[in-house]
Design a protein around this nucleic acid. Structure first.
Lengths: 172, 172
DNA sequence: GACCTATATGTAACTTTATAACATTGCAAG
DNA sequence: CTTGCAATGTTATAAAGTTACATATAGGTC
């Protein structure tokens, strides 16, 4: 397996660059092989539907609705009923291979699966693209805010809406 | 208008105490009068539907789905179609009088309207209650994380799922 | 290899959540 | 009073997500 941190693709190397141009084909291939390794490691089955859904999310490189994914699946001969897509997406999310963007009712492939991380998402309101920002500090702060009330934080969704660099530039 | 910070109701005084027992009738009345003041100040119309929706959210003191609110409205002689509820809820949200909880597809009255705040929500997965936690620091950190990528954060939703003190106690 | 079981997939039907589009009402400024 | 705009009412439909049950298939066991 390639060393994720040392292959020279900015988009893969650093999630911070999700908005920047990068060799995305490389990212996809890499993320996929990482997913396979992860599944093997955990004794999980990365079945055809699941694998294909992950591929689709990686290919599109954007947040996709469950029904968008479903349409792609149906066109390729998989089942065409909602549970087919939701089950695969839920599996991927549980395994940290994909994330759910609640503000968009959509899903996106995780760019660095396996690495423990509490993601924060930056959602551009103009182009709708989504970047995953490093948020360890944010999550820690949230845990702490919860703890102050005696609340035990188990999961979090941290999402920001705004303008990405490209769209902000275009507007100006 | 009563001084919000000095009337002795712990639930009102400190949003941190949302999970704690408190004089809720007082909170409601207070929040409502604050909403009225705010509307007057901004030249907005706190119409019967809007006002009633806010009252309902305050009364129930929990996150409510738009259709839950709609049912209450319909029972009271207001329109019984979804836009009636959504429009009022959207208005309240825009004015900072209510918040949308994306993980629950639900809405909740803001406990301290008018005060600038970037709320974080703590959602108990057992009892489904929601507390609004102070999150200025979180929001600042999110702004900064965005800025590092050239992303201009305009709005945020920060939500945590976990166990509230009561439910954690009951489980143990 | 034949069988059994757990897991995954396929499918139908339905619920819940949300929006679009347009008609109607009513308050408010001139 | 009338004209215009904001708010509400209403119809219809779209989008998102779930329940329940039938079928298939991978992997383990004999």
């Amino acid at each position: 397996m390639p060393d994720h941190a040392d292959h020279g693709c900015p988009g893969c190397e650093s999630p911070d660059l999700a908005f920047a141009r990068h060799d995305h084909a490389h990212c996809s291939a890499d993320a996929l092989s990482r997913a396979e390794a992860l599944a093997a490691e955990r004794g999980l089955r990365l079945t055809p539907v699941r694998r294909r859904v992950l591929e689709i999310l990686l290919e599109e490189h954007r947040a996709m609705g469950a029904y968008d994914v479903l349409n792609r699946l149906a066109a390729e001969g998989f089942g065409n009923q909602p549970p087919v897509a939701y089950r695969a997406l839920d599996f991927l999310e549980e395994q940290g291979l994909a994330h759910r963007i609640r503000r968009l009712n959509a899903f996106t492939a995780c760019v660095h699966p396996g690495e423990a991380h509490a993601p924060a998402f930056l959602i551009c309101r103009a182009c709708n693209r989504v970047a995953e920002a490093p948020a360890e500090g944010l999550r820690a702060a949230l845990d702490q805010a919860g703890a102050a009330l005696g609340f035990a934080v188990e999961g979090s969704s941290i999402e920001a809406v705004g303008l990405c660099p490209q769209c902000a530039g275009a507007a100006a």
